[in-house]
Every structure is written in C-alpha cells, then in structure tokens.
Simulated assay, not measured.
Amino acid sequence: AGVERISEEYGIHDVNLVKPGVGETTRVLLRRVPWKILARAGAGADLDHVRLLAEQRGVPVEEVAELPYTCVGLIHPKYTRGATGADGKAVNV
C-alpha cells in the first residue's frame, strides 16, 4: 500500500518504478536511471552512502516525514527498463 501511495503521490503511476528500502535504493542509484530519492526524516548516518551516491549522480534527496521505509528510490518514469546511464541511454552488449 505504501508503494502504491508513493507511486500516485509522485505522479509515477507504476509501482515497478518505486523501489523501497536501503538495498533497492542503492541499486537504483548504481544501476538504473534515478529520478529522486525519498529519505525518512531523521534517518541519519544509515543513509550516508545513499546521500553520497545521490550527490555523485546529481539526484535530489527529499526528506519525508512518516515515510513507511527508511528510503525509497524512484526510477525516472521517462525511461524504460533497459536504460542504465545517467543520460538515459541503454548500454548495448
């Protein structure tokens, strides 16, 4: 229910682009096209690596009170599953 609410609230309308939890958020920042990171207000040092990765990728981190997860990674709704770069271009292997 939390993922569905976040998907609607942020205008994504696809629960597959909402990745809850520290591990999933880290993966979004490393391997996907991140749009925005939501962090529970007061999460502190637990999210230092997430904040660092977000800064390096130029992704905004939004502090959210009463977030049901420590953090949530939002994949950019404009790009497809194959997109992996910060510029949204897929890597052809």
Rank of each mutant, 00 (worst) to 15 (best):
E9I: 04
Y10K: 09
G11L: 11
G11Q: 07
I12N: 08
V15A: 07
L17N: 05
V18L: 09
V18R: 09
P20S: 08
P20D: 11
G21Q: 11
G21A: 11
G21H: 14
E24S: 08
T25Q: 02
R27P: 04
R27Q: 14
R27T: 10
V28K: 02
L30E: 10
R31H: 12
R32K: 15
V33R: 09
P34L: 02
I37A: 00
L38E: 05
A39W: 05
A39L: 13
A41I: 08
A41M: 13
G42L: 04
A43L: 11
A43K: 12
A43V: 15
D46W: 15
L47A: 04
L47K: 06
L47G: 01
L47D: 05
D48W: 09
V50D: 02
V50M: 03
R51S: 01
R51N: 04
R51I: 00
L52A: 14
L53E: 04
L53F: 03
A54V: 02
A54I: 03
Q56D: 10
R57A: 04
G58A: 05
G58E: 06
V61W: 08
E62C: 02
V64Y: 06
E66G: 08
L67T: 01
L67Y: 04
L67D: 05
L67A: 05
P68N: 12
C71A: 11
C71L: 07
C71R: 07
